[in-house]
Structures are given as structure tokens and as C-alpha cells.
């Protein structure tokens, strides 16, 4: 397996609430490599979203290290962290934040243009990203002319446009019906297979099951993991299943 894109080692995050200190995460280790999709599950308040925020450089740990593509975020200046966030990390949240006045293509190209990539180049990359999520033909549409599932796929395309190789998704299927939610998961899975590392926070076991590994968080601690299953076909009798 290739070098991990994301490594959390001994990550602890405490929040002070008046007199008491709440530990949202305690000594979490997690490593995600290219081609890998890892799901994080746990009850609300277990630290799932905190983990994602730390992984994406949106928050800093109280103790421990976060490395993205080999760089320790704690050793970077604020500006360098912002650059890592823009160039290495893509985010998909339940709240899509697509700009309504821009077409799908323009929404996807925007992060590249903000990063100084020339317009033509940015649009070419955006078109490729939209094609990858099966939306090439809808590139000219505006968000309100698309279904919820299509908008979510635009958000994924935007998260992965350009060279970014770490994809962080927080309940990306939250507002979607089950069939559309599954399409989104198929796109995430395919994108990781094609060369990205993904972390997916979800409460939905059926969606988490698309991951290579499922990490269970409870009270800020990783209590268990379900790694690659031993003998993928053991459930059904032999590979004669298909």
C-alpha cells in the first residue's frame, strides 16, 4: 500500500466549557492511504465531526499530530495550512454550499480559480471532475435546475477537482433518499478507487459499508474497527454467487 495521505497520531481535542474540560477526542490514531475509503461511525457526541475537522486542518488538536500528505500541520504557518486545505483536501458536507448564481461548471472551477489557476485550465479540470461523477452533460446548469443527488455530485466534483487527494465527507447523504444516497456513495467509492483517500462520517450503516474500514468512535475513543473482511465470499457459498 502507498504512503498514507492522512495520519492522525495520538490526537486529543479538548474543549473548555466553563469549569469543565470536555474531551471530544482522546488519543486517536488513524491512517488513510490512497485508494482507501474509511468510514467513521458513532453516536452523536462521540467525536466524529471533530475528527473530520482536525483531519482537514479546520481545527487544531490539543495533543497529538495530524499529517496530510506527509506534512505535519502543527509545523506549518497558518497560511501554509490554508494552502494545504485548498490544494490537498476536499470537503463534502451535508450542507452543499453551492453558489446559486454560478453554473455547475463554475462552482466546480471556483476553488481552482481562487487558488490562482487560470480560467481555461480551471474549467477544463472542472469539466473532467464533473464527467467523473457522471454530470458532464449538466455542466451548464445552475444548482436550482438540478436534483438533490445531482447537486451532491457537483459538490463531490468540487471537492476533488484538481490534484486534491484527500476527501472528507460529513454525512454527505443526509438529505437524500436511499437510492440517490447510494449513487453518491458509488461516486465516492469510485473516486477513492481511482486514486484518493477518503474519510466518511456517517450514522448510516448501509453507507458505511461501502468503506474498506469502519472505525467505531465512542466518547472520543476508537473502540473497534472492522477491517477488510476475511474471505469476501464466505457469506454466500463460493464465488459462484457471481
Amino acid at each position: 500500500m502507498s504512503a498514507p495521505v492522512l495520519v492522525l497520531s495520538g490526537v486529543t481535542r479538548e474543549h473548555r466549557q466553563g469549569e469543565t474540560v470536555v474531551r471530544a477526542l482522546r488519543g486517536v490514531d488513524l491512517s488513510v492511504s490512497l485508494g482507501e475509503l474509511v468510514a467513521v461511525m458513532g453516536p452523536s457526541g462521540s467525536g466524529k465531526s471533530t475528527l473530520l475537522q482536525l483531519a482537514g486542518g479546520l481545527d487544531t488538536p490539543t495533543a497529538g499530530r495530524v499529517r496530510v500528505e506527509g506534512r505535519d500541520l502543527a509545523e506549518l504557518s497558518r497560511r501554509q495550512v490554508a494552502a494545504v486545505r485548498r490544494r490537498s483536501v476536499g470537503y463534502v458536507f451535508q450542507d452543499l454550499n453551492l453558489l446559486p448564481s454560478l453554473s455547475a461548471l463554475e462552482n466546480v472551477a471556483l476553488p481552482l480559480e481562487l487558488d490562482g489557476v487560470r480560467g481555461g485550465l480551471a474549467r477544463r479540470a472542472a469539466r473532467a471532475a464533473l464527467e467523473e461523477v457522471g454530470l458532464g452533460v449538466l455542466a451548464g446548469r445552475f444548482p436550482d435546475e438540478m436534483s438533490g443527488g445531482q447537486q451532491q455530485r457537483v459538490a463531490i466534483a468540487r471537492a476533488l477537482v484538481g490534484p486534491r487527494r484527500l476527501l472528507l465527507a460529513d454525512e454527505p447523504t443526509g438529505a437524500l433518499d436511499s437510492t440517490t444516497g447510494e449513487q453518491v456513495l458509488r461516486v465516492l467509492r469510485a473516486r477513492c478507487d481511482a486514486g484518493a483517500a477518503g474519510v466518511l462520517v456517517t450514522h448510516d450503516a448501509r453507507h458505511a459499508a461501502w468503506a474498506d474500514r469502519v472505525v467505531f468512535l465512542r466518547d472520543g475513543v476508537v473502540v473497534d474497527q472492522s477491517g477488510p473482511g476475511a474471505g469476501a465470499e464466505s457469506l454466500l457459498t463460493g464465488d459462484g454467487a457471481r
Partner: peptide, 12 residues
């Protein structure tokens, strides 16, 4: 969950 992952792989 492991079982569910295996089933999902077959489904994919």
C-alpha cells in the same frame, strides 16, 4: 458491519 461490507462489495 463486516458482513455488510462484504455484501456491499458483491453489490458493487
Amino acid at each position: 458491519m463486516r458482513q455488510l461490507q462484504e455484501l456491499t462489495r458483491l453489490k458493487a
